[in-house]
């Protein structure tokens, strides 16, 4: 669905992402990991179309990414950013409805209203619907933004595949909702969506990812296709931590302690 061909990004002489090649197809859940400043967000921004790569190019659904119009792209990929700063009072419902903006002209259609309700139910924020967004806690706000992004993904089909980019989507969430959010993303994968998420928790990545990319200093160090292949030396190299790796008691998968 999306293919990076020798794609890199530099500001002046400072290379933020060393040219790398990568392919993500619909139905895949790819997690990007790495220390702070490893170039994860830059990679994600290039894939979202917000940053124009300074090297190589990106092909999205068979067409160069930069040839898409912003409104056209908004119907085919959604992005959850790390931070939101909102200086005006808006209700939670109004924020979630923004996810549907690319789909209607003047007034939301019944379909859009239903989608908003459905997304709020899925992230369990329906009770916040009339609350002023500015009064929410960090975790609540993150859930609401996820709702908006889910609403923007909207309907999908085999002929209408979509891309979901998540930049540290669970940074403010409690344990329950970390899993809730990633389960939602995982379910989208079964509905013709490709998901690429930046995560910091190795164990969450091991649980949900189909593939894990490890980045360090702007370089794609390893693409871990088999999660069982994770090693302590890899974690040492990428994160500079001494980690121990265990087998899950149920016998499926690995567990990392650090």
């Amino acid at each position: 669905m999306i293919e990076l061909i020798h794609t890199g990004f530099a500001v002046g002489k400072k290379i933020l992402v060393t040219p790398l090649s990568l392919q993500v197809t619909a139905g895949e859940f790819v997690v990007v990991m790495g220390a702070n400043g490893a170039g994860k967000s830059t990679l994600l921004k290039m894939m979202s179309g917000a940053l124009q790569p300074t090297k190589g190019n990106i092909v999205f659904k068979g067409k160069p990414l930069q040839q898409y119009k912003t409104e056209e792209l908004a119907k085919q990929r959604a992005v959850l950013s790390q931070h939101y700063h909102i200086s005006f009072p808006l209700s939670v419902r109004e924020i979630v409805m923004m996810g549907r903006y690319p789909y209607f002209n003047d007034q939301p259609l019944v379909r859009d209203e239903e989608m908003v309700v459905d997304c709020m139910n899925r992230m369990e924020v329906t009770h916040l619907s009339e609350r002023n967004y500015q009064t929410l806690s960090g975790g609540e706000a993150q859930k609401v933004q996820m709702c908006r992004v889910l609403a923007q993904i909207g309907e999908t089909s085999a002929t209408n595949e979509k891309l979901l980019l998540l930049d540290e989507p669970v940074s403010h969430l409690d344990i329950k909702y970390q899993h809730q959010l990633l389960k939602e993303a995982k379910q989208l994968c079964e509905k013709n969506v490709a998901v690429l998420a930046v995560l910091h928790d190795v164990n969450l990545a091991l649980k949900y990812a189909d593939r894990i990319l490890f980045m360090k200093d702007g370089i794609l160090v390893t693409e871990l296709n088999k999660k069982e292949a994770i090693t302590a030396s890899l974690l040492k190299e990428v994160f500079d931590v001494d980690a121990k790796i265990f087998d899950m008691p149920e016998g499926n998968g690995k567990f990392v302690s650090y």
């Binding site: 921004k45 979202s48 179309g49 917000a50 119009k69 912003t70 409104e71 056209e72 792209l73 908004a74 119907k75 990929r77 959604a78 992005v79 950013s81 939101y84 700063h85 909102i86 200086s87 005006f88 808006l90 109004e94 924020i95 923004m98 996810g99 903006y101 690319p102 923007q152």
Partner: peptide, 20 residues
């Protein structure tokens, strides 16, 4: 109106939501 609403989220975010 819709585009101005989206801009409340931030410039980059408005871009993701389809606003030039």
């Amino acid at each position: 109106a819709k585009q101005l609403n989206t801009l409340i989220l931030g410039e980059e975010e408005a871009g993701y939501a389809g606003v030039d």
